[in-house]
Design a binder for these strands. Structure first.
Ligand SMILES: [Mg+2]
Length: 452
DNA sequence: TGTTGTTTAGTGAAAA
DNA sequence: TTTTCACTAAACAACA
């Protein structure tokens, strides 16, 4: 059966919510972050329906960006002046789409207030990074604000869903069916650390991580010089990274720093352009990472925007085969070809890959600015009916970024035509059993975002 | 001045 | 029935 082409939605409203559309725009961007204009462009480029009534839906979209915690505003770097900030996805928002499909959302993504405050405080520092980052040992008065704020650490610990690696794991577990974990020992190449984590660790290194309180994130590797922990080039970042550092010893923070702290710290470093030379970042093995849900691992790809100067190749953002094989967020199982996993570039090695019939190459503007990551060279997968464990190719011997992204559209049901009206039922699934390539992900997000 | 971002208010549909 | 979610409208401020 011929596969639909990219704009097969035509004037019909695509079955994706604004949240989904925005997430797609962010996902498909190689930097994993977009300006508002980028998001507009992505949507109008790929969904003709949104080429009209722009004021209406763009207003709604802006509302969504501000209102939903899953979208995080990243201030522009000094070397990238322009209007508006960048928008990215909250790390744990990766799991917000049910079964990795943009067609569904689990539930509203909400960051606990204390965590949100802490994150915003960290990000706020980006706006004035030199104030502290340039000062080798600046007083903690500025950044320490978050740490000393009683509203932050204790409450964050007690919140229902504290945004920590641990909590992510816990929250994942209750959603996703248990998938056998692959022993970290089987990870090739980087000792015990998945590639994504290697990046993570490298970043941590540059951010003077790992973290002050060694009880928080266990750095079991003897390869990590102690000096890293104590001779941080950015000591003033510590309060951002460890807002809980004042917790009584009887309440050891589980797996801190949380991802949002990585976010903030990474963004801060990027914004300040203070990345120190990195020749030989030691391989760190945060043992806690082994318990990190793959969701979180996957979400680290969002740090890519901040790692341009890191000594890592793009593949570093891909999960290793083992690390992603046990996605607790079930990235492998999606009813849609437009899966989060695919957007993230996870290569599925589905046993019976259906042959890709027709596909349309991305237009130029898509291949660069809006570059999709489609490593599914065999066109397979989309066998989303079954909960097959995902197998991510080892990036070592494959060239994930080389194959040009291809988009094909799946047949869509007819929907009515007025932006703003939602003729379909949010819970109707878009037609399944259609072969949709990764590129098309742009096209296959759903309106029925039910939220995390 | 147009764009970007935040916030409040309200509606309708679906889910709990 | 109540709650949640997606959407729309609008007012407003800040910014390039
Ligand atoms: Mg937001």
């Amino acid at each position: 059966m011929p596969r639909p082409c990219r704009e097969s939605y035509g004037d019909q409203k695509p079955p994706y919510s604004y949240i989904s559309l925005t997430a797609m725009a962010i996902f498909q961007n190689h930097e994993k972050m977009c300006t508002l204009a980028d998001i507009y462009k992505f949507i109008t480029d790929n969904f003709p329906y949104y080429r009209k009534n722009t004021q209406r839906w763009q207003n709604s979209l802006r509302h969504n960006l501000s209102f939903n915690d899953c979208f995080i505003k990243i201030p522009r770097r000094p070397d990238r002046p322009g209007k508006g900030a960048y928008w990215t996805l909250h790390p744990s928002a990766m799991g917000m789409f049910e079964n990795g499909s943009f067609l569904r959302r689990r539930k509203r993504f909400k960051i606990p207030k204390p965590e949100k405050d802490a994150m915003e405080a960290g990000l706020a520092q980006i706006n004035n990074p030199l104030r502290c980052l340039d000062v080798p040992r600046c007083p903690s008065e500025t950044l320490l604000g978050a740490a000393t704020n009683p509203m932050v650490s204790p409450l964050a610990q007690q919140s229902k869903h504290p945004f920590t690696v641990e909590s992510l794991a816990a929250s994942d577990a209750k959603f996703a069916p248990a998938v056998p974990q692959v022993a970290p020992m089987s990870l090739p190449g980087l000792g015990l650390m998945p590639r994504g984590m290697h990046h993570h660790a490298s970043l941590a290194h540059r951010l003077s991580l790992p973290y002050p309180h060694s009880d928080a994130l266990s750095l079991s590797s003897p390869t990590l010089p102690n000096s890293l922990a104590h001779n941080s080039p950015y000591p003033s970042l510590a309060p951002i990274l460890h807002p809980h550092h004042q917790l009584p010893p009887t309440l050891p923070p589980p797996f801190t720093p949380s991802l949002h702290q990585f976010y903030a710290a990474a963004a801060a470093v990027a914004a300040a352009s203070l990345v120190p030379p990195v020749s030989s970042a030691p391989v760190v093995r945060p043992t806690a990472m082994h318990h990190m849900p793959n969701l979180a691992l996957a979400s680290l790809s969002v740090l890519a925007p901040f790692s341009a100067s890191l000594p890592l190749r793009p593949q570093a953002f891909q999960p290793s085969r083992t690390s992603m094989a046990s996605s607790s967020f079930n990235l492998n199982t999606t009813s849609s070809n437009y899966s989060v996993a695919r957007l993230l570039g996870y290569k599925s090695k589905s046993p019976s890959p259906p042959p890709r019939s027709t596909s349309t190459p991305l237009p130029d503007h898509m291949s660069d600015h809006h570059r999709l990551i489609d490593y599914d060279s065999d066109g397979g997968e989309d066998n989303d009916e079954e909960d097959m464990p995902i197998h991510v190719a080892d990036t070592e011997d494959e060239a994930p970024l080389s194959p040009p992204p291809r988009l094909t559209l799946e047949p869509t049901k007819a929907v009515e035509v007025t932006p703003g009206k939602r003729p379909y039922s949010p819970h109707e699934d878009s037609p399944e059993n259609h072969q949709v390539s990764s590129e098309e992900l742009l096209l296959r997000t759903s309106p029925s975002v039910r939220s995390i």
